[in-house]
Amino acid sequence: MINNDSTEPRPDFISIRNFSFFYGKKQALFDISMDIPERQVTAFIGPSGCGKSTLLRNLNRMNDLIDDIHHEGDIVIHNKSIYDPHIEVISLRKRVGMVFQKSNPFPKSIYENVVYPLRVAGQNKKSILDETVERSLKGAALWDEAKDRLHESALSLSGGQMQRLCIARAIANRPEILLMDEPCSALDPIATVKVEELIRELKEEFTIVIVTHNMQQATRCSDRTAFFYLGKLIELDDTQKLFSNPASKQTEDYITGRFG
């Protein structure tokens, strides 16, 4: 079981070190250094184009899928560089799950959506799959709503339920880290509240990094918040401190809406 090797959460579970990132010649991230603590929620905020999603997508090397990109510096998870030549990207992505802005269930049953990552890994034992479905749907606070319709199409679920199904799928393989890229931006307020509550619960087991444009969401869900602007990390602090007394004038101007 992941995270059981130590009772004390590591303050530098993810360590981003002098990290710069380039799309071709265009530099998107500039010399970012920050630590992301284990089993806490860290929010990335900032205006569009500030690099927050780019950085998030580097944490599981999703950006590798884009042509003509390169980076400088390093990202270290649990004392090991994710760019280590011995690291397999597939296994990295198993350890670092991701939930996207728009829910993207497969056109399969609820059950098959959740067990998909296990089937891809060659696991077909029914008892394990059943256990995973129940555990993951409970973890994603969807079990009570879905337990009697597991073999119905996932596309029959509501938008909020679909997003929680995607979270269930993301945690089915027991990743260490969960990346969330604006997970509530397409949801109504009630579904948003459910996902936010889920995020608070999931941090007991997972290290969560969430990109959000909704600053109230960052204040409600996260323990720490990082503010980015023009590809630079401007400020990283406890959420309560950053939203009540930011150290940087740029952060203050952004969060109070005096930007631009």
Binding site: F243, S244, N245, P246, T251, I255
Partner: peptide, 9 residues
């Protein structure tokens, strides 16, 4: 307006 930082204070 959900004020934060100096606005909230």
């Amino acid at each position: 307006y959900h004020p934060v930082a100096s606005d909230l204070r």
